[in-house]
Amino acid sequence: MTRILVIEDDPIIGEMLTLYLNEEQFTVQRVETARDGFQALFSFAPDVILLDLILPDAQGPELCAEFRRQTDLPLIVISMKTAVADRIQAISAGADDYLVKPFSMQELKVRIGAVLRRSQAASAPRRLQEAETSAGQAESTGITLDLERRTLLRDGKSVETTFSEYEIMKLFVEHPGKVYTREELINAVRGIDSFVNDRAIDVHVTNLRRKLEDNPKQPQYIKTVWGVGYKFVR
């Protein structure tokens, strides 16, 4: 049974989420502080995290970034903030999805399913075999993937990535030379039923270039195809 960690200090919203998710056959633990949330990562061992970014002991994108440093589990932000800038900040900090309160419980269930599909697909045996083959083809660039540890490597050294950055890079390495539109990257990372926009993809690519390229302003590996999208060059 899928385990959901709800980190939400509002008692009404927290109770509503807990009741609904229990009815949908999820196992749920709810906590009200960031500190308790970090502890629950180990004591509860969730499959998905629902995170409110305004908690009594921490708030903002930095909170999201700290959870991402602690785990690569699918992370969905639930927030009252509606501005596009807030969404971009959260996703750039490591969130895999963003829901604005109040939201449909059915939509929440769909988005949980979407992030789980992306996470589970990463460890599927067939995908593992394909990615290992493609990773070997990409060795000329020094960029490889360790699928078992979900780690991106540059010249044998681990490169820290968010969940979404890793998924984008895995897609690139599996299909070197293929041009991907931003819409295709959105769908590959999160699924068509989950929120993310073109700007967020650009942010992820910019971050990957900073981590992988010798000169991010003149990228050698992750190329922009003007008017279309991006491609990975070995």
Rank of each mutant, 00 (worst) to 15 (best):
M1A: 13
T2Y: 09
I4E: 01
L5A: 07
L5D: 07
I7V: 12
D9K: 09
D10H: 14
P11T: 06
I12F: 15
I12S: 15
G14D: 12
E15V: 07
M16Y: 15
Y20R: 09
Y20F: 15
L21M: 12
L21C: 10
E23P: 07
E24S: 09
Q25N: 14
Q25L: 14
T27N: 15
T27G: 15
V28Q: 09
Q29W: 07
Q29E: 14
R30K: 14
V31A: 13
V31T: 15
A34G: 12
A34L: 05
G37K: 02
F38A: 12
F38Q: 10
Q39N: 15
Q39C: 14
Q39E: 15
A40E: 10
L41M: 07
I54E: 13
L55E: 03
L55F: 03
Q59D: 11
G60Q: 09
L63K: 03
F67H: 05
F67R: 04
D72N: 14
L73A: 03
I76E: 01
V77W: 04
V77A: 04
I78R: 08
S79C: 03
K81L: 13
A83T: 13
A83Q: 15
A85R: 13
D86S: 13
S92N: 14
A95V: 05
D96A: 02
D96F: 00
D97Y: 01
D97C: 05
Y98W: 07
Y98T: 00
Y98A: 03
S104Y: 02
S104W: 01
M105I: 07
L108R: 02
L108W: 02
K109S: 11
R111C: 05
G113D: 01
A114W: 00
R117V: 01
A122N: 11
A122L: 09
S123A: 14
A124D: 14
A124Y: 08
A131D: 04
E132S: 12
T133V: 10
T133R: 15
A135K: 11
A138E: 06
S140N: 13
G142E: 10
L145M: 11
D146H: 10
L147T: 06
R149A: 13
R149V: 03
R150K: 13
L153Y: 05
R154G: 07
D155V: 04
G156T: 10
S158W: 08
S158A: 15
V159Y: 09
F163Q: 05
S164V: 09
Y166N: 06
I168D: 04
M169I: 11
G177N: 10
V179T: 11
V179W: 04
T181K: 10
I186T: 03
I186H: 01
V189L: 04
R190M: 01
R190A: 02
G191P: 00
I192P: 13
D193L: 05
F195I: 09
V196R: 08
N197S: 12
D198A: 10
D202K: 09
D202E: 13
H204Y: 09
H204A: 03
V205K: 08
L208F: 02
L208A: 02
K211G: 08
K211T: 08
D214S: 06
D214E: 06
N215G: 00
N215I: 02
V225S: 09
V228F: 10
G229I: 01
Y230E: 03
Y230D: 04
K231V: 00
F232C: 04
V233N: 11
